[in-house]
Simulated scan of single mutants.
Amino acid sequence: MSRIVVIGGTGLIGSKVVQKLIAHGHDAVAASPNSGVDTITGEGLDAALAGASTVLDASNSPSFADDDVMRFFTTATGNIIAAAKKAGVGHYVALSVVGSDRMTDSGYMRAKVAQEKLIAESGIPFSLVHATQFFEFVTSIAASATVGDEVHLSHAQIRPMAAEDVATQVARVTAHEPLNRTVEVAGPEQFGLDDLIRTGLAFRGDPRRVVADPEALYFGQRLTDDMLLPGPDATIVETRFADWLPDNPPPAVR
């Protein structure tokens, strides 16, 4: 049985991917600081990847500041590549973002592009999964765009998706042969970004007013209308936002 190591395997996507892989009979293990694996220092990486056939990087930077996020992704990826080569890993998978290569004003997206470049040029067979924004991040997107009691967001189009669907698609790619290319996954419906957040906040009784603002920044990027949309070959998943919302209410206030 092949061994699959999931970097960031205790996070939102990574933990779901580990569960899905195990459920389908794979030997999947989570690697994170909690399990003694530090991708920035390299501590624990060699031991974690020993005997692994595949590594999936589903980790994320703890800071989104431009310098911090670039340092995180380039340092961590360089360390993972070195450990993967030492272990003879034959498939390197990473989760990234639809439109990352178009959002050149965003420090976060520049860092993701740098990560992908390192992987693609590593010499290790690879697969890159670009996903659209997750339903789970509606509240945090609103928080980052709040000015007073208003939320300023672009009307740029987006096809968001549930984290559960992201994990399913990532697990499928991880369990199969390397693609040596990028694939895109996206949700079934197209929204204006402002409409998506407006719907999510209204469902949860949030009184903030969402304002369509073409100058509003998203991860530091001024958006064009189609910058967040996938291409025509994207895999389209099934879960609709209206069906997801009732099953994911806000945490109870104590």
Rank of each mutant, 00 (worst) to 15 (best):
residue 1 M to V: 09
residue 5 V to S: 09
residue 6 V to D: 07
residue 9 G to R: 05
residue 9 G to L: 03
residue 9 G to A: 07
residue 10 T to H: 07
residue 11 G to H: 06
residue 11 G to C: 11
residue 11 G to R: 06
residue 12 L to E: 13
residue 18 V to N: 02
residue 18 V to D: 01
residue 20 K to Y: 10
residue 24 H to T: 15
residue 24 H to I: 13
residue 25 G to V: 12
residue 25 G to E: 10
residue 28 A to V: 09
residue 33 P to W: 06
residue 35 S to Q: 13
residue 37 V to F: 13
residue 38 D to N: 15
residue 42 G to H: 06
residue 43 E to R: 15
residue 43 E to I: 15
residue 45 L to W: 08
residue 45 L to Y: 11
residue 45 L to P: 13
residue 47 A to D: 13
residue 50 A to Y: 10
residue 55 V to C: 10
residue 55 V to H: 08
residue 57 D to Y: 02
residue 59 S to R: 13
residue 60 N to E: 15
residue 61 S to I: 02
residue 62 P to I: 00
residue 65 A to G: 04
residue 67 D to I: 08
residue 68 D to M: 02
residue 68 D to R: 03
residue 69 V to G: 00
residue 71 R to P: 01
residue 73 F to A: 01
residue 77 T to I: 05
residue 78 G to H: 08
residue 82 A to I: 10
residue 84 A to W: 06
residue 88 G to I: 11
residue 91 H to E: 08
residue 96 S to I: 02
residue 98 V to G: 07
residue 98 V to C: 06
residue 100 S to R: 14
residue 101 D to P: 07
residue 101 D to S: 14
residue 104 T to V: 15
residue 109 M to A: 15
residue 109 M to T: 12
residue 110 R to W: 10
residue 112 K to S: 01
residue 113 V to E: 01
residue 113 V to H: 01
residue 115 Q to C: 05
residue 117 K to H: 06
residue 118 L to T: 08
residue 120 A to S: 15
residue 120 A to D: 09
residue 121 E to G: 01
residue 123 G to N: 01
residue 126 F to T: 01
residue 129 V to W: 02
residue 130 H to L: 14
residue 132 T to R: 00
residue 132 T to V: 04
residue 136 E to S: 03
residue 139 T to Q: 06
residue 139 T to H: 05
residue 142 A to N: 02
residue 143 A to K: 07
residue 145 A to E: 03
residue 145 A to S: 14
residue 148 G to W: 03
residue 149 D to H: 11
residue 152 H to C: 11
residue 155 H to G: 14
residue 158 I to E: 12
residue 158 I to Y: 12
residue 161 M to Y: 00
residue 164 E to F: 11
residue 165 D to E: 08
residue 167 A to G: 02
residue 168 T to L: 15
residue 169 Q to K: 13
residue 171 A to P: 04
residue 172 R to W: 08
residue 172 R to S: 13
residue 174 T to F: 05
residue 178 P to R: 05
residue 179 L to Y: 02
residue 179 L to A: 04
residue 180 N to D: 14
residue 181 R to T: 14
residue 182 T to V: 09
residue 183 V to H: 08
residue 186 A to I: 02
residue 188 P to A: 08
residue 189 E to A: 13
residue 193 L to V: 03
residue 193 L to T: 03
residue 194 D to Q: 09
residue 195 D to E: 15
residue 195 D to G: 12
residue 195 D to I: 15
residue 196 L to R: 03
residue 206 D to Q: 02
residue 210 V to C: 11
residue 210 V to N: 08
residue 211 V to R: 11
residue 213 D to F: 00
residue 213 D to R: 00
residue 214 P to E: 13
residue 215 E to Y: 10
residue 221 Q to W: 10
residue 226 D to R: 05
residue 227 M to F: 03
residue 231 G to I: 11
residue 231 G to N: 00
residue 232 P to H: 00
residue 235 T to N: 11
residue 236 I to H: 04
residue 238 E to L: 12
residue 242 A to M: 04
residue 242 A to S: 07
residue 244 W to D: 06
residue 246 P to V: 06
residue 249 P to K: 05
residue 250 P to S: 07
residue 254 R to Q: 13
